[in-house]
Simulated scan of single mutants.
Amino acid sequence: MSKNETMHIAFPHGGSIPASVLKEKDDRKVGPHEAVRVPRSYGEHMVADRFAYEADPAKNKAAATGTKGSADGREEDLKKFAGVLASREEALKAAESDLAVRTEALEKLIADVGAREKAVKAAETTLADREAAVSKSEADLFAREDAAKQAAKSNGNS
């Protein structure tokens, strides 16, 4: 393949290039940001579909050889990631603390609801007892009224 017919691409998250594209025996697996030379039509297709981007093979070789510049960059990246990790750990601790406070508050609310349910049941029992007493009193009153009417009839007072 001549230079005009080829281009270099790289996959942001790694990828696999079919053997038929590269005219090789097996598919080629490439790592993230690893530049690979492919036919221009295939490369443009991958770039247009945003599976890959056009890569500069010179930059890729410098990073792969581990030059001083890339090591410093890695140390900076590690420091950045350590800072991000520390801030996320702090956020996680704060979230765990908040969760503990909210869990305790929820448990208190659940206990309060239980106490209120017991109070409602006791009030319902008392109400039922009082309704039964009122019904008995009404029955006694009607019985006395009937007895008084019977007594008045038997005395001749109608």
Rank of each mutant, 00 (worst) to 15 (best):
residue 54 E to M: 14
residue 66 G to F: 11
residue 34 E to N: 05
residue 61 K to S: 11
residue 52 A to F: 10
residue 62 A to R: 14
residue 58 A to Y: 11
residue 44 E to F: 00
residue 46 M to R: 01
residue 51 F to V: 06
residue 54 E to G: 05
residue 63 A to Y: 06
residue 66 G to K: 10
residue 34 E to Y: 05
residue 38 V to W: 00
residue 68 K to H: 13
residue 60 N to L: 07
residue 62 A to S: 12
residue 56 D to Q: 09
residue 60 N to E: 13
residue 32 P to T: 08
residue 66 G to C: 13
residue 53 Y to E: 14
residue 66 G to H: 10
residue 56 D to W: 04
residue 57 P to T: 04
residue 60 N to S: 15
residue 62 A to I: 06
residue 48 A to F: 15
residue 39 P to H: 00
residue 67 T to I: 12
residue 52 A to L: 09
residue 69 G to P: 02
residue 54 E to D: 07
residue 32 P to F: 10
residue 33 H to N: 15
residue 68 K to T: 12
residue 51 F to Q: 15
residue 53 Y to C: 12
residue 62 A to K: 12
residue 33 H to V: 11
residue 33 H to K: 15
residue 34 E to P: 02
residue 53 Y to D: 13
residue 43 G to S: 01
residue 68 K to Q: 13
residue 40 R to W: 02
residue 61 K to Q: 10
residue 55 A to W: 00
residue 37 R to N: 14
residue 35 A to I: 13
residue 57 P to G: 07
residue 43 G to I: 00
residue 45 H to I: 01
residue 57 P to I: 05
residue 52 A to E: 12
residue 44 E to W: 02
residue 61 K to V: 08
residue 66 G to D: 12
residue 41 S to I: 04
residue 49 D to R: 06
residue 42 Y to A: 02
residue 59 K to D: 13
residue 47 V to H: 04
residue 48 A to V: 11
residue 60 N to K: 10
residue 40 R to L: 03
residue 52 A to N: 08
residue 57 P to D: 11
residue 55 A to P: 09
residue 52 A to V: 12
residue 45 H to N: 05
residue 58 A to K: 13
residue 58 A to C: 07
residue 34 E to L: 06
residue 32 P to H: 02
residue 57 P to C: 04
residue 51 F to Y: 15
residue 47 V to K: 02
residue 57 P to E: 09
residue 58 A to M: 12
residue 47 V to G: 03
residue 64 A to D: 02
residue 43 G to R: 00
residue 60 N to C: 15
residue 34 E to S: 04
residue 51 F to I: 12
residue 58 A to Q: 11
residue 69 G to I: 05
residue 69 G to Y: 03
residue 52 A to M: 13
residue 50 R to K: 13
residue 44 E to N: 12
residue 34 E to I: 09
residue 51 F to P: 04
residue 65 T to K: 15
residue 42 Y to G: 02
residue 35 A to D: 04
residue 38 V to T: 00
residue 55 A to Q: 06
residue 50 R to G: 07
residue 68 K to M: 10
residue 59 K to F: 08
residue 69 G to W: 06
